[in-house]
Each structure stands twice: as C-alpha cells, then as structure tokens.
Design a protein around this nucleic acid. Sequence first.
DNA 1: AGCGGTCCTAACGAAGCCCTAACGCCGCCG
DNA 2: CGGCGGCGTTAGGGCTTCGTTAGGACCGCT
Lengths: 224, 224
Amino acid sequence: MTRVLVVEDEPQLLRALGINLRAVRYDVSTAATGSDALRLAAERPPDLVVLDLGLPDMDGTEVVAGLRGWTDVPILVLSGRSDSGDKVDALDAGADDYVTKPFEMDELLARLRAMARRGVSNEDQPIVTFGANTVDLAARRISRAEDEVRLTPTEWHLLEVLVRNPGTLLSQRQLLLEVWGPGYETARGNLRLYMGQLRKKLEDDPARPVHLLNEPGMGYRFQP
Amino acid sequence: MTRVLVVEDEPQLLRALGINLRAVRYDVSTAATGSDALRLAAERPPDLVVLDLGLPDMDGTEVVAGLRGWTDVPILVLSGRSDSGDKVDALDAGADDYVTKPFEMDELLARLRAMARRGVSNEDQPIVTFGANTVDLAARRISRAEDEVRLTPTEWHLLEVLVRNPGTLLSQRQLLLEVWGPGYETARGNLRLYMGQLRKKLEDDPARPVHLLNEPGMGYRFQP
DNA sequence: AGCGGTCCTAACGAAGCCCTAACGCCGCCG
DNA sequence: CGGCGGCGTTAGGGCTTCGTTAGGACCGCT
C-alpha cells in the first residue's frame, strides 16, 4: 500500500485529509509540526508527502530542504492564499507540485495519483502551451518563441488563476478575490491594468487578444 | 437522519427555516455568521448546507470556498435581489444551487431533497443542450455548431432563469423580477427585446422559435 | 542616498451595453 | 370592417465598462 505522510497543523483539515486519503486506500501517517514530520519520515520513509506550508514551528522551505537532503520522495505542498511567496520558495527547494487552499479534495487526490504514477520526482503537467507561449507553473517560467518572458509576482498570480481554469469565464470579483484577497473586490481598474500587462507580454497582437479575453460586464476568460 | 446546517443572520428567517426543516425530519444546526458556520461544519460535518449570502462577517463566496476546501457537501445558497453578483460568484465558487429571496418554502424543500437525492459528491448539471446549442452555465460558455456564441450579462441572466426551469411557463412578471429586479415589473418591452436577442443568437430560425417560446398574454417558456 | 522594480490611483478616448421610443404585424373582439 | 392590445423588430441616446497611459508611493538593493 502506498504510504502517505500528511503534515498539517489544523486539526480539522488534518482529519479531513486523513479520512479522504484512507478512503482511497492510502496508508496514512500524520504529523502536526515540521520536526515531527522529519522524524517520522526518517523512521518510516513514506512514498508521498503532503505538506502544509503554514506550520507553527518551522518554515515550509526548511521541511522540504530537510527531506530533500536524503530522499527523492515526491512532495506536494499545500499553500494558503497568503503564502504565495513561501510556495515559490518551497518549489525552488525541491517540492514537486502544489495546491492552493482552499482546494478540491478531488484535485488533490488527482495530483497525488499523478505524483505516485510518475514515481520519483518528476514534474506534473503544470505546463500549458498556448500560442507561442509555454507556461511552466511549477517552475514559474515562461518561454515565448525561444525567449524568456519575465512576469512580476502579481502578473504570475493572475495568470495562474486564469490558466488553472481554461475556457471558464471568471468574474472580476472572483479574480480580484483570488489574486488581491478580500477588500479589493472593487479595484477593477487594477484588473484591467494587469490584464493589459499580460496581454502585452503574451499575446501576438496585444490589441487583439486571442487567449486572454474579456467579456464586457462579465469577466475574463483564458482560451488555450 | 440527514443533517442540515443553516447559515442565516436574520433571526426571523432563521427561526422559520428551523421550524420548517425540523417539521420534515431534518437534523438542523444553525449558525449566524460565516466563521461560526465554518467552525460548526468542521466539528460535525453536515449532509447539506443552506447558506445566506448576506452575512455580516464574511463574503458568501468565502464561506463557500472555505467549505469546498475540504468537503463536497451540497450547498444551497439563499440570495437577496441585491446580491445577484454574489450569487453568481458563489455558484462559481462551488455552490450547487440557489434560491432567490423571497422564496416559497416548498421550493426550498424541493431543491434540498433534490440535492440530497443526488447525494454527496455529485455535480450539478451545468451543461444543457438544445437544438445545436450546448450551454455550460458554470463556465459561462455556449457553443453552437462548433462556433462560440457570446452573450451579454443581461442575456445570460435571462437565459439562465429560463434554462433552470425547463418546460415551465414563466410569467413576464416573474422574469422581470428575477432578471431586472423590483421596479421593472412593467418594462415588458425590455423582455421582448432581450428574448429577441436570445432567439437571434440561439434559434435556427429566429422568426420561428422552437425553444424560446411565447404564450401570448401569459409569459415565456423554455423547451429543451 | 540613489536606483530599479513593482504596485496602485487617476484620467481619458473608445467600445459595448442597456434602456426608451417608435413602427409593423398579427389575432381578437366589437 | 375598424379598433385594440400583445408581440417582434429596429434605431438612437445615455451610460457603464474597457484598454491604455502617465505619475507617484513604496519597497529592497547597491
């Protein structure tokens, strides 16, 4: 049976994860702190690790580094909305994939399956191509016709939300809530600004977007 | 017994909901704020959630997201006339159904039964097909014979109301109230206008509609 | 302190959408 | 046969939304 180590300090979420994972026949062990996690992993090396970044005792990056020092076990990171910086650091430190809270349990399970299937340390398919662009969400890189495209953190966040919902129309309220957080639901001008930036960097003809589309009065849509 | 969590801040409505739900043998627990709701749901996961969008402490979307982060429990949203934007966002965030205030208690109970029957972890049916059209309500997308059809916000709203009540005759007053809100009950010309737009975009022969039908003096009917 | 980069606000044409009004058409009734 | 009301369609003005540019505030870094 596949052994999963879940590292999560919120009891409710820990419980929910345990139930769901056991329901699909994983052998689950849990830890509430980073040090516990490292100790447990050393005692009985798991096949997969689910790691919340918001731990009380250690930085998520340190936990990843502590594991990566001696094992290639696939690590899936759970990141809250506010930890986007930590998330990037964790991926750089060697995590394999991530899911942003709040997440669908289905999605988490799917990503876990993908990681288990690939076996050891391979990338998921957070790689999306559209037009001349190749977007690697996990590595945070974009190449556009052999060139590198550089995006600011906010641009990344916005693009990420769009790319993760291909073909779906996202209301401006939804986007603002996801990217800027509560309290910015009315800053529509901001959204227009950053959508413009993305188009300028990613569209062949920024004045006539093909992939980053607006539907007046409704919201924006990413069309692969 | 089926457990229902009711999230409602108006005491009278909360009381009415409690009485009616208990009368039909639901096990009811209640919360007056979003944070209470999340806490209660975590402690004793309910089988159904009835959620008012107009809560004092949190945005309805956040509550839905907070639940969807770890559970697939069916969520029915109560939305006031003024929260129509919130309602859409709540559905996008993962709510399963909604009822507009003021509502008939019978209808709410019926929709609750429908959600319970579908059971946990079953999705809505946000995809409807009629004629050459495929309507994806969640993604806000319509394809018509390989082509994309673009609808304005008002057209979407109107179509949504019709599609959610297939085969049912909806009075003009009902439609006007739902789409345009109070104060526009007499703007019949408006309804004719937008019905025409929908027919032009969705019917094979707009002059001889097959799916978007009028019953003179009565109202309109959507025929799948 | 200076500087490059990022983020936010304000402002302004341009485009799109919504509503009102008006005109034909049809069926119904006197 | 003529009036009447409901329906469908078209056209135009007012308003909202969108894309874009410019400028200033706020970092972290040298």
